[in-house]
Amino acid sequence: MTLKPLSDRVVIKMVEAEETTASGIILTGSAKEKPQVAEVLAVGPGGIVDGKEVVMQVKVGDKVITSKYSGTEVKIDGEDLIVVRQGDILAVVE
């Protein structure tokens, strides 16, 4: 099953948090921070949203940073995905 986002929505998947620090210390599950970097899996067409034209700025494959508590979490085929508005995406990681 695939998700096809509508309007200004974007489907993202969070990137796994690092399990070791730069100095080589292995982190336990509780010590890891929730990642805010995600990979874009699908992008809606944009269009008119709330009376304003929205042009999509992200594309499939981009790594992005999102607001910490944004979006709607869904589970599709065993994968945890998040559907967010483009406005909840703060930056593209290059």
Rank of each mutant, 00 (worst) to 15 (best):
10 V>Q: 00
59 K>Y: 00
86 Q>G: 06
24 G>V: 02
57 Q>M: 12
91 A>L: 07
79 E>Y: 08
48 I>Y: 11
4 K>R: 15
48 I>D: 08
79 E>V: 08
42 A>Q: 13
45 P>R: 02
68 K>Q: 12
28 T>L: 13
83 V>H: 01
58 V>G: 00
20 T>R: 13
81 L>I: 03
42 A>R: 11
33 E>W: 05
57 Q>A: 14
6 L>P: 02
47 G>W: 07
19 E>L: 05
56 M>E: 07
28 T>I: 01
83 V>K: 00
45 P>D: 02
13 K>Y: 07
43 V>G: 05
14 M>E: 10
76 I>M: 08
21 T>W: 11
64 V>I: 14
59 K>W: 01
56 M>D: 06
67 S>H: 09
18 E>F: 15
57 Q>I: 06
51 G>Y: 01
9 R>A: 12
64 V>D: 02
74 V>F: 15
52 K>T: 14
64 V>K: 03
36 Q>K: 12
79 E>W: 04
9 R>G: 07
83 V>D: 02
89 I>L: 02
78 G>H: 08
78 G>M: 06
47 G>F: 07
82 I>G: 01
56 M>K: 07
31 A>K: 07
79 E>S: 06
37 V>F: 08
62 D>S: 09
10 V>G: 03
63 K>V: 06
63 K>I: 02
69 Y>V: 12
69 Y>T: 13
48 I>F: 10
34 K>L: 12
19 E>C: 05
66 T>Q: 04
67 S>L: 15
54 V>Y: 01
35 P>T: 00
69 Y>L: 15
37 V>H: 10
44 G>K: 03
66 T>W: 01
75 K>S: 11
67 S>Y: 11
81 L>A: 00
42 A>N: 10
24 G>W: 00
9 R>D: 12
53 E>S: 10
75 K>E: 15
61 G>Q: 07
29 G>N: 14
78 G>A: 08
11 V>F: 02
19 E>I: 13
14 M>I: 08
73 E>D: 11
45 P>E: 04
59 K>H: 06
2 T>I: 13
26 I>M: 10
41 L>C: 09
74 V>D: 10
14 M>K: 09
26 I>G: 06
51 G>P: 00
85 R>Y: 13
34 K>S: 14
68 K>L: 14
23 S>W: 09
86 Q>V: 05
54 V>Q: 01
40 V>Y: 02
82 I>L: 05
13 K>R: 15
47 G>C: 07
92 V>C: 03
92 V>D: 02
14 M>V: 07
89 I>W: 01
64 V>T: 03
64 V>L: 05
75 K>Y: 12
23 S>I: 11
77 D>W: 07
71 G>S: 05
69 Y>G: 06
45 P>N: 05
94 E>S: 13
73 E>W: 09
94 E>Y: 06
11 V>G: 00
70 S>G: 14
89 I>E: 03
24 G>D: 03
53 E>M: 14
12 I>W: 10
62 D>G: 06
84 V>D: 01
23 S>C: 06
50 D>G: 11
5 P>G: 01
48 I>P: 00
87 G>R: 15
67 S>V: 13
41 L>G: 03
33 E>I: 10
8 D>I: 03
